[in-house]
Computed example of a mutant assay.
Amino acid sequence: MNRKSWLIIIFSILHLSACSRNNRTASIELSGLNYKEVGIAEFSVDGSNGHSIFPNGGGGAFVCCITIQRTWHAGMKVNVRWIEDAKLLGPWKKRVVEVPKYTEHEIGIFAVHFYPDDTVKVLVTTKIIGHPDYPYPRPN
């Protein structure tokens, strides 16, 4: 084989190995839902920035992107940080949150739910709040 053939083979192998690494993750949109009486001025998940959320609002805005593993594994967690009330900008609140099981077919958006007691739940889903199978209903 000549040098050009070897270069083509090496380039092809490198290209295929890069693609296989990229197939292990997915970049999906990030969305927040706020069930608190105070707004969320800013939030992030593992360093990916979300949007501001009005009190008792959210779910309609999406920010690109957060990178997740295509294959869920037990013990998968994310770091969620947020600041409440855009007027006062208090200290960052932080939670380490377990990611519930998902399949590759459920990879659509990464939803972050903020509750009045500072509990945070996350979800990888293709469903929107209000769907009968959505696991986190809006609290009363």
Results as ranks from 00 to 15, higher is better:
2 N>C: 11
2 N>D: 14
3 R>K: 15
4 K>D: 09
4 K>N: 10
5 S>I: 15
5 S>C: 14
6 W>V: 15
6 W>R: 15
10 I>L: 12
11 F>G: 13
11 F>A: 15
13 I>S: 05
13 I>R: 06
13 I>L: 10
13 I>A: 11
14 L>K: 03
14 L>C: 07
14 L>Y: 02
16 L>W: 06
16 L>S: 03
16 L>R: 02
17 S>V: 10
17 S>N: 13
19 C>I: 14
22 N>G: 14
25 T>W: 04
26 A>G: 06
26 A>T: 11
26 A>R: 13
26 A>M: 05
27 S>D: 15
27 S>P: 12
30 L>W: 02
32 G>N: 05
32 G>L: 03
33 L>G: 04
34 N>L: 00
36 K>S: 05
37 E>L: 06
38 V>M: 07
38 V>F: 05
39 G>D: 03
40 I>D: 05
47 G>Y: 09
48 S>G: 07
53 I>A: 03
55 P>M: 04
55 P>N: 03
64 C>L: 04
65 C>K: 06
65 C>D: 06
67 T>F: 09
72 W>V: 00
73 H>W: 09
73 H>L: 11
76 M>F: 04
77 K>L: 00
79 N>E: 12
80 V>S: 03
84 E>V: 08
86 A>M: 09
87 K>V: 07
91 P>D: 13
92 W>K: 15
92 W>F: 12
93 K>G: 04
94 K>T: 11
94 K>G: 04
94 K>F: 11
95 R>K: 13
96 V>D: 01
98 E>Q: 04
99 V>A: 01
99 V>W: 01
99 V>T: 00
100 P>G: 07
104 E>A: 08
104 E>L: 07
107 I>F: 03
107 I>E: 00
108 G>D: 01
109 I>K: 14
109 I>S: 10
109 I>E: 11
109 I>G: 07
110 F>N: 01
110 F>W: 03
111 A>K: 07
112 V>S: 06
112 V>I: 07
113 H>G: 02
116 P>N: 02
119 T>E: 09
121 K>W: 02
122 V>D: 00
123 L>M: 07
123 L>W: 05
124 V>Q: 01
125 T>V: 04
126 T>A: 09
126 T>Y: 03
128 I>Q: 14
132 P>Y: 09
134 Y>H: 13
134 Y>I: 10
137 P>H: 05
138 R>E: 13
139 P>I: 02
140 N>Q: 12
